[in-house]
Design a protein around this nucleic acid. Structure first.
Length: 532
RNA sequence: GCCGCGUUCGUCUAGUCCGGUCCAGGACGCCAGGUUUUCAUCCUGGAAAUCAUGGGUUCGAAUCCCAUACGCGGUACCA
């Protein structure tokens, strides 16, 4: 046995990755990294009916996107490094590889093993064959419900079918399941890492089916066997598993194995406190990716849904490795957490401001390339450096990447439409507005010594300061009244509208600098003409 | 129904293990004010929680105990 902690993320390929599932994966990862342990990815595809084509690939892609690197398990072919010795190609999923010494990591490839263990349990008297038809089970449950008794299998096949009959039925290839024989009159107790002591009466626990009639194991059997085979030390999973933990505990006992430590995570909730569901918003991680949420923000936000660093820590923005550094099970919450999209938006905005311009640019491209104003822009406005400049001023107002460029379209357009009403500052007449614009034009023309270039990836922008100062001086000189008050708006408002055509925009200095002197003058000319 | 788990500002939460420093702190959101015109950013301030309710223990309880209510999960040959 290794001393290392070993945790696993074990999703079912039944669709896109649910955000709640993603949080489980995150906590697994954080715990593994924090404790210097291993993180394993296992695929639990034991339900043929709910299987969704492409779900495995999608799961791998999402984990890869988020950067939740794992040490063992199921990988995309392209992710494999060459020094892995235990690599096998998946039998059931083309293009998928299994890496590690405890494989297979895909349950559908291990059917024989589960069956063998189930039969061993029967031999040892801890499980039994059941030949009951689904219809009979349904009737039985209906009856129990009517009499307000707990719906539990009545053990017909355990008590009324003789060993000879069993052998005969098996020989005839009758359809059967194998059920766990839950011992009576016992109190099962275990220590949950987040909830503390939890107790269950075995009399209320159903004789769980372990092996289905199609030869596949149920979650309960496969999960316990795999967690043991893979030497998992901590099972971190959703609260929905809490009530089936006694079944798992019993399996460990019957196999003679030491159970891992269990940690049951609180649920993620809708605003009305019901379990997070599609009806009230997006639940797939992919939906959030498509909307332009950064992986850093999703990770940051989701990590804090049910956990916090404690000890009065007031920092809110954390990187993945900072989270791994601080993560511990004792600060995991017991109660469910409402998924508040407003806070996600805020965290996302923080991250958009935090990453480098180059990074922002690279991540924004795929979104820009879906937008007409960008696609139709001339080449020089699509140039990397130009877009980076735009991004450097737009990021302050960006919440999500899918909004990129939306309130900065005027940077990409070649011709603007002017509204003379909008150009006017307060009570000014048209001729006054025109005069103001002409003044701006002259000022701009006169700035021969100012270099309009700036490095969008470098925070210091001295040229901008000079442009600003120049205009401020002009405003002071021309629009200061007898009381010494300067009405800067009289100069700056028409200038800004001439450059952008918009009611709201970044400052005219920033816009002028990005547009460049020539185009700024052009736009001023057009606005002046409009007033003629 | 039964079993299990939970419950601090609208939301995420600190504090609960080791009762007093908590007439409960931070953040989001909201409101107001400020910043080299506007929107945004940023800064400052504000409103917002009888610590689910009731009882007990105690000089003293958000913190310990009991009960109740409410919410959620499970109750499948789904995971």
């Amino acid at each position: 046995m290794k001393n290392k902690t070993r945790v696993r993320f074990a999703p079912s390929p039944t669709g896109f990755m649910h955000i709640g599932n993603f949080r489980s994966a995150l906590y697994d990862y954080l715990f593994a990294v924090h404790t210097g342990g291993d993180f394993i990815l296992r695929i639990e595809d034991t339900d043929k009916k709910r299987f969704v084509e492409g779900a495995v690939e999608s799961l791998l892609k999402t984990l890869d996107w988020a950067g939740l690197e794992y040490d063992e398990g199921v990988f995309q072919t392209t992710e494999i490094k060459d020094d892995n010795t235990n690599v096998i190609e998946s039998k059931n999923y083309p293009g998928v590889l299994e890496v590690g010494e405890f494989g297979p990591y895909i349950q559908s490839e291990k059917l024989e093993v589960y069956k063998k263990y189930a039969e061993q349990l029967v031999k040892d008297g801890h499980a039994y064959y059941c030949f009951c038809e689904p219809e009979r089970l349904e009737e039985m449950r209906a009856e129990q419900a009517a009499e307000k008794r707990p719906p539990i299998y009545d053990r017909y096949c355990l008590n009324h079918v003789t060993p000879d009959e069993i052998n005969a039925k098996l020989k005839e290839n009758c359809s059967y399941t194998i059920r766990l024989k839950i011992p009576k009159d016992e109190t099962l107790e275990f220590e949950d890492a987040v909830r503390g002591k939890v107790k269950f009466e075995t009399n209320l626990v159903d004789d769980q089916v372990l092996l289905k009639s199609d030869g596949f194991p149920t979650y309960h059997l496969a999960n316990v066997i795999d967690d043991h085979d893979m030497q998992i030390t901590h099972v971190i999973r959703g609260e929905e598993w809490l009530s089936s933990t006694p079944k798992h505990l019993l399996l460990y006992r019957f196999f003679g194995w030491t159970p891992p430590i269990f940690a049951h995570l609180p649920l993620l909730l809708n605003a009305d406190k019901s379990k997070l569901s599609k009806r009230q918003g997006d639940v797939a991680v992919e939906d959030y990716i498509k909307k332009g949420y950064l992986k850093e923000a999703i990770i940051n936000f989701v990590a804090f849904l049910g956990w916090n660093p404690g000890n009065g820590e007031t920092q809110e923005i954390f990187t993945l490795s900072e989270l791994a550094d601080k993560f511990d099970m004792t600060h995991v919450h017991k109660g469910g957490a409402v998924f508040d999209i407003k806070k996600l938006d805020w965290i996302n905005a923080q991250w958009i401001k935090k990453i480098s311009i180059l990074d922002l640019y690279q991540r924004s491209l795929e979104f820009l390339e879906t937008k007409d104003f960008y696609l139709n822009a001339p080449a020089e406005k699509k140039a990397e450096k130009y877009v980076k400049k735009v991004l450097s001023v737009e990021r302050a107002r960006l919440l999500k990447l899918d909004e990129v460029g939306e309130d900065a379209k005027f940077f990409f357009k070649t011709a603007l439409h002017y509204d003379t009403e909008l150009l006017r500052w307060k009570e000014c007449e048209d001729f006054e507005t025109k005069k103001s614009l002409q003044l701006s034009k002259e000022t701009l023309e006169g700035m021969a010594d100012v270099d309009f270039e700036f490095d969008p990836e470098n925070a210091t922008n001295e040229a901008l300061q000079r442009i600003m100062q120049t205009f401020m001086q002009v405003a002071e000189k021309n629009f200061t009244d007898e009381d010494g008050k300067t009405d800067r708006g009289q100069l700056l408002w028409p200038l800004r509208v001439a450059l952008t055509g918009e009611q709201w925009s970044p400052s005219p200095f920033e816009v002028a600098q990005i547009l460049g002197k020539a185009e700024s003058l052009e736009r001023l000319d057009k606005a002046i003409q409009k007033l003629n």
